[in-house]
Simulated assay, not measured.
Amino acid sequence: MKKLSQDQIEEKLNAYPDWEYCDDAIHAEFEFENFKDCFSAMSRIAFECEAQNHHPEWKNVYNKLFISLSTHDAGGVTEKDFKLLKAIEQIVEVED
């Protein structure tokens, strides 16, 4: 998979205001009502990650979820990351 240019990434991120690009990855922070809701979203995201065979760097602190996406084999952000981003957005939207 080919690494996207910074311009390509920033153009794609215009549609996703919760995400930002830095350090060769795209990042987002999501806040939920409580830990249970956050963990529920994480579980749903985990199943999608397995289905796509693409796994984020993430951490959870109580009701907050921090996600970073990059394709390590390509050394940066690729279309694969945006495919997972779109799935994450749909999952998080349902949880709101």
Rank of each mutant, 00 (worst) to 15 (best):
A25K: 12
I26G: 00
H27G: 06
A28Y: 02
F30P: 04
F30V: 13
E31Y: 04
E31A: 06
F32D: 13
F32A: 09
E33D: 13
E33T: 06
E33K: 07
N34P: 13
N34R: 10
K36V: 15
K36A: 15
K36H: 14
K36Q: 15
C38W: 10
C38Q: 07
F39L: 11
S40P: 07
A41R: 00
S43Q: 12
R44S: 14
I45C: 03
A46Y: 11
A46D: 10
F47D: 09
E48A: 15
C49N: 14
C49A: 15
C49F: 13
C49I: 14
Q52S: 06
N53K: 01
H54N: 00
H54S: 00
H55P: 15
E57P: 08
N60P: 15
N60G: 14
N60I: 14
Y62C: 02
Y62S: 08
N63R: 02
L65K: 01
F66Y: 12
F66V: 03
I67C: 04
L69G: 09
T71H: 14
H72E: 12
G75Y: 10
G76V: 13
G76M: 13
V77P: 00
T78N: 11
T78M: 05
E79P: 08
E79W: 02
K80I: 09
K80N: 11
K80M: 09
K83S: 01
L84V: 05
L84D: 03
L84S: 04
L84C: 02
L84I: 09
L85R: 03
L85S: 08
A87G: 08
I88Y: 05
E89C: 09
I91A: 04
I91E: 04
V92K: 01
V94Q: 04
E95Q: 11
